[in-house]
Every structure is written in C-alpha cells, then in structure tokens.
Amino acid sequence: MLICKTERLTLRELQLSDAEFALRLYNDPSFLQHIGDKGVRTVEDAAQNLQQGAITSYAQHGYGMWLVEHQRGQAIGLCGLIKRDFLAETDLGYAYLPEFFGMGYAYEAAVAVLAYAAEHTDLNTVVAIVSPANLASKSLLLKLGFEQDGQVLVPDKNEMVDFYRIHLTKQPDL
C-alpha cells in the first residue's frame, strides 16, 4: 500500500517480496554498526523478519517501517514509525544503503513520515533513539526539529543510546 510520495521518493508498505532488499540492507556494515545485527543471513530470514516486524506492525498499529523507493522504483532504504516494547512512545526509524547517504533522501522521507504521523495517527509526539557515535543521524534529528531528551537503555543490547523527541503539529482542517 502506498503511504506517500515526495518530490523524489515513494514510501510504501513492505511486502515479503522486499526480502532481498532487506537482506542487503540489514547486512550492510553501516547498518550493523549503527543499528545492530538482526541475525538475518538468508532471504528466508529477511522475509520472516519483515513478516514479524513491519507487516505485523501495520496490522497492530496502522503503521510501521516503510520501504523508501527513488521515483525510478529503486529501493534505497527504510523509514517509518516503530512501536518498541521498551519505549512508551512511537519511534522514528530509518536506514539507507550507503550509496544514498548525503543526498537528502533521509531528511525528505523523514519529513514525509512525520507529516503522515501528524495527519493519519493519534500520535502527539514521536521519539527517536540513536547511538551516541552516529553523528550523521543526530544531525538529521536536529534538522527535523527533534530535541535531545537524555538517554535510554536498549534492553536487548544493554546499551545506552541518545533519546530525542518531537511534538507533532496537526494541520487545521480548512
């Protein structure tokens, strides 16, 4: 299902047919360094991860991680909303293949996701977590208008990460 379009990007729900892309992204060195090892080693593992993660989240929450495609139809990353067990609020998540870093795609997709959250969900705030060493991600969050609000422990990693929050602004009905 289509979520939204921007000037250069399309965001849509992930499908099991996106497993090959997910396998590549989840095993990219930058993903492993900044997000972590999901233990996804095969296309079947990736399909199972998509089913248990994003696809289940769509049914439970009405949102989840979405595939980010360049308008030419090429998958370049993920961006979306995640309801994590250890956070009270919904989290903005994103990850891109390194060949698409530094081109403004992460910002463009995140702006669209935050607008979607404001208009199509009951969320009043969105949070984000980022490893302290991930300066590019921290810079992106600040550019989006997030404010740092301390740190939080990620239980399965037993690691403290920086915690950010943004208050969503609903557009008035005209």
Score class of each variant (00 low, 15 high):
Q15M: 11
M65A: 05
I82M: 04
G39Q: 13
G64R: 05
G64K: 02
V68T: 01
Y26Q: 05
K38M: 08
A22C: 14
T90E: 11
A22H: 07
T42D: 03
S30Q: 15
L50K: 02
Q52A: 15
Y26L: 13
L92R: 02
E20C: 11
G77A: 01
W66T: 09
R24H: 14
E89Y: 04
T56W: 04
P29A: 08
R24Y: 07
L25G: 04
Q51E: 14
R24E: 15
V68R: 01
A54R: 09
I82Y: 02
A75Y: 00
L23W: 06
A59W: 03
T56A: 15
D28Y: 13
L67Q: 03
K83Q: 13
L11G: 00
G77E: 03
A54T: 14
S30E: 14
L67D: 11
H70C: 03
W66Q: 05
A88P: 08
T6F: 11
A46C: 07
A88G: 14
Y58M: 03
I35L: 11
T6W: 06
A88N: 05
R41L: 01
E44D: 11
D18Q: 08
K5S: 12
L16K: 11
N27L: 12
L32A: 06
I55A: 10
G39K: 06
Y58S: 11
E20V: 13
I35F: 02
A88D: 11
H61Y: 15
R12C: 07
G73Q: 02
D18G: 04
R12V: 02
H34W: 12
G77I: 00
K83T: 12
L25E: 05
D85L: 09
Q52M: 15
G80Y: 01
L50G: 02
L50F: 00
R84V: 00
V68G: 02
L78H: 00
A88I: 12
D91V: 06
G73A: 04
Y63I: 03
N49E: 05
S30V: 10
A19E: 14
Y63F: 15
R72I: 07
R72K: 12
E69I: 00
H61W: 15
V43K: 07
L9V: 05
L16E: 15
E89Q: 07
L78W: 00
A75E: 12
E20F: 06
E69N: 04
T56L: 15
L81K: 00
E69Q: 11
D85W: 08
Q15N: 14
H34L: 03
N27I: 13
G53L: 05
R8H: 10
G64P: 10
A19P: 09
S17I: 09
A88H: 09
Q74K: 08
E44F: 12
C79F: 05
G39M: 09
V43C: 00
N27T: 11
I82W: 04
Q52W: 06
A75I: 01
K83G: 08
T90H: 10
T90G: 03
F21I: 08
A59S: 13
H61D: 15
L92D: 01
D28G: 10
D85P: 05
L50V: 08
E7Y: 12
Q60W: 09
Q60L: 15
L32G: 10
D45Y: 07
E13H: 13
S17V: 14
F86E: 06
G53F: 02
T42S: 15
D37S: 09
Q33P: 04
C79V: 07
A75H: 04
L14V: 01
L23S: 03
Q15K: 15
H70E: 09
A22G: 01
L9I: 06
Q52L: 15
I76V: 12
